[in-house]
C-alpha cells in the first residue's frame, strides 16, 4: 500500500508545482513507483513543468467521469519508467470533482504505486478540499514572506481540523544573502512561527527557472536546489539527513571576508 501525499500552500506562486515535480521525480530516481496528480482543474501546469504537455490524451476529469480507465490517462515520464502523471483538465472547473471521488481515486492508485502525490491548487476552496480528501500526509510549501507564511498558517489550521495525520514544511525560495543582511526571515524564524516539522529548505536559484524552461526537474543534479530537493525525497522515505546549512561560510572569498571583518 502506497502513501498519499498532498503538496499545498494556501498562497499561489510559492512553488507547489515545482516542488511536486521535483519531489515526484526524485522519489522515482530513488526507485519508487510514483504517480503525480495535478488537481488544479482549469489551471493545468504540472504537465509543462515535467515536459509532458504534448502527450496528454485523457485527464483527471475523464477518469472521474468514467470516460476512460485510469491506466489510459496516466502519462509515463520521458526518462524515468516508474514515474507517471495524471494531468488535470484545462477546460473544466473545480466543481467537476468532489472530495469523495478524489478519495476513491487515490485509494485505487495507492494499490499500484509507492507514492501518490497530489499537486494542490492555491486557495482554500473546493480544489483544496478535493486534494486534501484522500491524503495521508501533507507537505506545506512556503516562502520566507509574511503573506505566504500567514496563508500557510491558515492551511495548517485547516489540516488540523481535517485531522491530517502528518504535516511537514518546506521553506522555498530562500535568499541566503538577504537572510545574512537581516532582510529576510531565516529558516528558523519560519519554523518558530509555524511550529511544524521542517522537512526541507530550498534556496532561490536561477537554475529552477532554467529547469522549468526545459521541462526537466533538476532534482538530484549538482545545483543547490537539486541537492536540497533530493534530500527532501530521502527524508520522505524515512532517511534522516541534516538540513543543509546554506548560510555557512565556505570558499576562499568568504573566508577572506570573515578575516577582514574580525580585524575591524
Amino acid at each position: 500500500m502506497g502513501e498519499v501525499i498532498v503538496i499545498t500552500s494556501g498562497k499561489g506562486g510559492v512553488g507547489k508545482t515545482t516542488t511536486t515535480a521535483n519531489v515526484g521525480t526524485g522519489l522515482a530516481m530513488l526507485g519508487k513507483k510514483v504517480v503525480l496528480i495535478d488537481t488544479d482543474i482549469g489551471l493545468r501546469n504540472l504537465d509543462v513543468v515535467l515536459g509532458l504537455e504534448n502527450r496528454i490524451v485523457y485527464n483527471l476529469v475523464d477518469v472521474i467521469e468514467g470516460n476512460c480507465r485510469i491506466k489510459q490517462a496516466l502519462i509515463k515520464d520521458k526518462k524515468l519508467p516508474s514515474l507517471f502523471l495524471l494531468p488535470s483538465a484545462q477546460t473544466r472547473d473545480k466543481n467537476a470533482v468532489t472530495p469523495e471521488q478524489m478519495q476513491k481515486l487515490t485509494e485505487e492508485l495507492r494499490n499500484d504505486f509507492d507514492f501518490v502525490i497530489l499537486d494542490c491548487p492555491a486557495g482554500i476552496e473546493q480544489g483544496f478540499r478535493n486534494a486534501v480528501a484522500g491524503a495521508d500526509r501533507a507537505i506545506i510549501v512556503t516562502t520566507p514572506e509574511i503573506s505566504a507564511i500567514r496563508d500557510a498558517d491558515r492551511i495548517i489550521g485547516l489540516l488540523e481540523a481535517a485531522e491530517m495525520k502528518r504535516t511537514d514544511l518546506i521553506v522555498n525560495r530562500l535568499r541566503v544573502d538577504m537572510v545574512k543582511r537581516g532582510e529576510m526571515m531565516s529558516i528558523s524564524d519560519v519554523v518558530d512561527i509555524l511550529a511544524i516539522n521542517l522537512i526541507g529548505a530550498v534556496p532561490d536559484d536561477e537554475n529552477i527557472v532554467i529547469s522549468t524552461n526545459n521541462g526537466e526537474p533538476l532534482v538530484g543534479n549538482d545545483t543547490l536546489p537539486g541537492k536540497a530537493f533530493m534530500n527532501i525525497c530521502k527524508r520522505i522515505t524515512g532517511e534522516e539527513i541534516e538540513i543543509m546549512d546554506f548560510t555557512s561560510d565556505k570558499g576562499f572569498a568568504a573566508k577572506l571576508k570573515k578575516l577582514f571583518k574580525r580585524n575591524n
Binding site: I149, D153, R154, V179, G182, E183, M185, D189
Partner: peptide, 18 residues
C-alpha cells in the same frame, strides 16, 4: 532589520488569525 519587523508583524497577525 526588516526581517525582525516582518516577524513581529506576522506574530501579531497570526495571533488574531488563530
Amino acid at each position: 532589520a526588516s526581517s525582525t519587523v516582518a516577524k513581529d508583524r506576522l506574530r501579531l497577525v497570526l495571533i488574531h488569525d488563530r
